[in-house]
Structures are given as C-alpha cells and as structure tokens.
Amino acid sequence: MTASPHIVVIGSGLAGYGVVRELRKLAPDARLTLVTRDDGHFYSKPALSTALAKGKVADTLVTTPAEKMAAQLRLDLRAGREVEAIDREDKAVLTTGGPIFYDKLVLALGADPVRPPIDGDAAHRALAVNNLDNYREFRAILPEGARVLVMGGGLVGTEFANDLSATGYCPVVVDMLSHPLAQLVPAGVGSAIREALAAKGVEWHLGRKVLAIHKSGTGIRAELDGGETIEAAAVLSAVGLRPHLQLAADAGLDVARGIVVDQTGRTSDPHIFAIGDCAQYPQGLAAYVTPIMAAARAIAPSVLGTPMEIRFPPLSVQVKTTACPVVLLPAPQGVEGAWEETANDEKGLKYLFRDRRGSVRGYVFTQDYCQERMNMDRALSEQTTGLAA
C-alpha cells in the first residue's frame, strides 16, 4: 500500500489556504503541512484597504482563527516559523523550528512591499499595510482626524485614500504619475477618480516624488521633488508590491519577475509548485482573488500527480473607491492597442481597450456602468474560448 504523500505549503494567505482546501477535497488522506511566519489566521487581505470605514480593528478582520483552519483542513500548521532555505536535494524545507521533509512543495510566498529610497530621520515611519500586523500598527499610530501622507496613487494607495477620507481623516496622496491608477486606467478615468476623491477631502500631488521624510512636532514633514513640503501625522507607503523571489532564487529555481511556472503551476523543479502573487505564469503575473482561486483548483490535482492546466477567466478587478466606483479589466501586458471612450454621461464613463486588430482586450467602467461587468466578462470569456478553438 502506497503511503499518503506529504505535501508542504509555505504561506498562509489566500493562495496557501486556497490550495490546501483543494488538496484536502481531492486527497482526504494526504499529509498536509502549512508553514507560515505569521500566526496562521485566515482573513481577506483586500479588506485591509476598506477596514477603517467599516470600523474594523485587526482582530475583527480575522474570519477564521488558525486553530479552526487547522482542525477543518486536518492540517499540521507550523505558525510563527521562518523558512530559511529549501534543500531540493533532500527535499526538505529548513525552518527556524527545524527541517520539514516533503514529497511535493507549494510556494505561496506572496509579495513584499517595495521600499523606495527616501532620506530623512523619519523615513522608517513609512508603513506599508500588507498584513494584519501592519494594519494593527497603522491603527495604533493614527490620531483621530489626522493628515495622512499616502505615497502611491495606484490601486492600494487610491483605495486607502478613499477609506481614510470616508472616515474623517485627511489623506494627502503623492504619486510620480499623472493620474490615479495610471498603470491601469486611461487619463479620463483617472481624472474622474481624482476629482471625486478631492471632493471628499483628498489632496493630490501628482507628478511628484517624496525625497525625504523628517520628524516634526506634528509627526512628520515630507519633502517633495518639486520643493513642496507636507506635514502629516502618519505615512502610508503604497508604492507597489514585488513578488517574493529570494527563497526560490536561493534554491536555484528559475525566477524572472516572479517564480517561473508552467501552465500547471509547476516550477523548474518537478516537485515544487508556486501560486499567487509570487508566481509568474506563462501569461505573466496574476495577483488578485480570482486568479488565485482558479490556480488553486488546477494546481491541487497537478501536485497530486494528475497535471491540469490553469485556465484563468477574465481577470477583472473591482476598485474599492466608494466615491467613484470603478471596475476594470487591465489591458494585457505587451499587447499594442489604445483606449477608446465609448460613453461619458450622467451614468459614468466607459472605455474599451482595443488591440491592433480591433478586438476588445480590456475595459474600464465607472459609476452605474459598473453593472455591466458580468456581461462584459462573459462576452470576453466567450471571445477568448473562440480564439483558442
């Protein structure tokens, strides 16, 4: 009788727990071990950028405590363990609690906040809110109604600015690009978002970069490259995330922008898979909830010896800006084309991204037009299936 395989998963975010759930469905007798440097509680990371307006503290963001996750999934949970290295020859994960041997290994390492080079004696106060502990620390340093410097006007920075302004704080957003969400949406939509949030009290400094952050009597004083200074009580850094690669690179796995995987989620080592923010699929990086769940459903059978290709649905995103609701499907990386405005009226804005052949490959809808998201996703999914056939 063949012994049940021992599958080790590193990471307790949506990707890690998502693949464990799928593995447990398919293999009731498999030995599953999850290693995490965190406490292992399950929560929604996207909820961090809307938690203030919902009156949430860190503990109330936890949807399932670690002990309950371990019991439900019949899981050996090794929480509070740092993974120091992967020994591929002996198939062992080397942790601060000792080695853990595996038959198959799944890397769900997530992404790390980008730390831009900033001068000044308070540069270390720029806090990136990327997990529960970060959020707990952020809440602790936030005086009621304070001015908050938000570095970054991308998805996370804009969502936090919306959340802060809706809760009585005064966010000041600094971004090097010309409009909010500049890497995702055309200028017309960016202007609409900027104006809607400005009406709620958000102050924008676009086309600017923070050079230095100094201590001051009110908290901090930031110097911008245009000569402006900003006084604030706290600093939130939201300049982006970078896939966590070091562990995989040190183990000799192929890495590029992420840990390189094939269409089944397998890395350059046939016994190791990667999923989520750390993985670079053949289509590129694919963060967000929808691709993670799609990948988990395919990677689980692949890990268990039945290779299954990951099939991503249209990876549309809801931007959590209540002041200006937005849904979007980003234009595919490396595809030439242009944004076309198809509606601009009292219902909101509609933009379509068309490639050089005229095919719709992305979209941005605002306000009432957000209701058309499901129909558009369905149509694009059918179009993709037709092209593949």
Rank of each mutant, 00 (worst) to 15 (best):
A92M: 08
A92G: 08
A92Q: 08
L94T: 06
T95K: 13
T96S: 15
T96Y: 13
G97V: 10
I100G: 10
Y102F: 15
K104Q: 13
L105A: 05
L105E: 01
L105V: 01
L109I: 07
A111R: 08
D112R: 15
V114D: 15
R115H: 13
P116V: 04
P117H: 10
P117A: 13
I118N: 04
G120A: 08
A122V: 00
A123Q: 06
A123W: 04
H124P: 10
H124K: 15
A126R: 02
N131S: 11
N131P: 06
N134G: 14
Y135K: 01
Y135M: 02
Y135G: 00
Y135P: 00
R136Q: 03
E137V: 13
E137Q: 15
A140N: 02
I141V: 13
L142Q: 00
L142D: 00
P143M: 00
P143E: 01
G145P: 14
G145V: 08
A146N: 05
V148R: 01
L149P: 07
M151G: 07
G152H: 06
G153M: 11
G153V: 07
L155W: 08
G157M: 10
T158S: 13
E159P: 08
A161R: 05
N162R: 11
D163G: 02
A166Q: 14
T167Y: 00
